[in-house]
Design a protein around this nucleic acid. Structure first.
Ligand code: SF4
Ligand code: SF4
Lengths: 161, 161
DNA sequence: CCTATTACAGATATATTTTATCCGTAATCA
DNA sequence: TGATTACGGATAAAATATATCTGTAATAGG
């Protein structure tokens, strides 16, 4: 059970886009080169973000992507769910319906205990991601990443925006 | 991102094995028929449980599986991790190392902020599963499942144990 | 108006993982 | 001895993730 690598890419892209000045857009091509990932496939992830209203994409030269709202209004969960989907990781195949001792009653009934427990764990995962915003990420990054690397990256990106 | 269906099967099998009297073993064949799933593939899940010390398998006629310890000493997490593995669902491909502005320093460094946040969410998921034991499940099942179904299932299984 | 650039949607191809089956071996019991 | 079982490894089929390719429409700038 693995998350798609697009999740990682999308998160990094959003982190990078926080540095954009008002009205400036970053093309997928640049984001792909910056992260060293295939442009075409990364585009799919960015389009997913766009469809979920997390980023805004504009066409034409000087077009590209930027965040659709303030970083403190974008959570990790928003981003993860945009590319990974909202469905629970636990798939219930209703195998209790195969129990030879159960006539019919149970089958269309409410989800069983096992499923509820698994879904609750899933919700705990989501809740954890819901609690972290891009602003939180930025604060941590400022501590972790040396200032010169941050500045150089910023300059590298703006040159190509 | 989906959990394997073996997870669901393993959980149901453990639930069923709680009903076994001391010293009695339930063959994979019976468990498979009871749940309506392919025996060969279910066996793989049961072997995983066995390797992780959650169930005990014995050979020969009247052999099969039973729980290796008391139900209150077996958590959902034990079972899920046995078949799904212990690794985080978030795979870090170290794409920050591809950043053209980073020389060398960063690359072998500690895991970055993004990864830590994702791993923490993963841990929240595990913590949730760690908090539920088979005993808890049994209590819930007693409420959810009608008594006659429970009794009939029990009888059906013991006939074939 | 023209051209280069871009996001976007859809089709296709490849790789990896999940799902499932098959077979041979060893242990156990009657 | 013979039937039954778990176990491990090899293999096959299906589903999903990964990646590429194509064409279209919008847009900025000349
Ligand atoms: S998890 Fe619950 S609802 Fe799903 S198959 Fe098992 S018993 Fe049925
Ligand atoms: S998640 Fe962190 S450690 Fe992993 S690639 Fe991204 S920056 Fe690097």
């Amino acid at each position: 059970m693995n998350l798609k690598n697009q999740v990682e890419w999308a998160l990094h892209c959003c982190a990078v886009m926080m540095a954009l000045p008002e009205g400036v857009y970053l093309p997928a091509k640049v984001l792909a080169e910056f992260h060293g990932v295939p442009k075409e496939y990364l585009s799919k992830a960015l389009q997913a973000l766009s469809q979920h209203g997390i980023v805004i994409g504009t066409l034409g030269p000087s077009g590209g992507y930027r965040l659709a709202r303030a970083p403190d209004q974008i959570s990790f969960l928003d981003i993860v769910e945009a590319v990974e989907g909202k469905r629970s990781t636990f798939r219930c195949e209703e195998i209790r319906g195969n129990n030879p001792c159960v006539p019919r009653r149970h089958r269309a009934g409410k989800p069983c205990t096992v499923a509820r427990i698994m879904w609750k764990a899933d919700e705990a995962w989501r809740e954890s991601l819901r609690g972290v915003s891009l602003t939180d990420l930025a604060a941590q990054l400022a501590e972790d990443v040396p200032d010169d690397v941050l500045a150089k990256s910023r300059a590298w990106l703006l040159e190509r925006a």
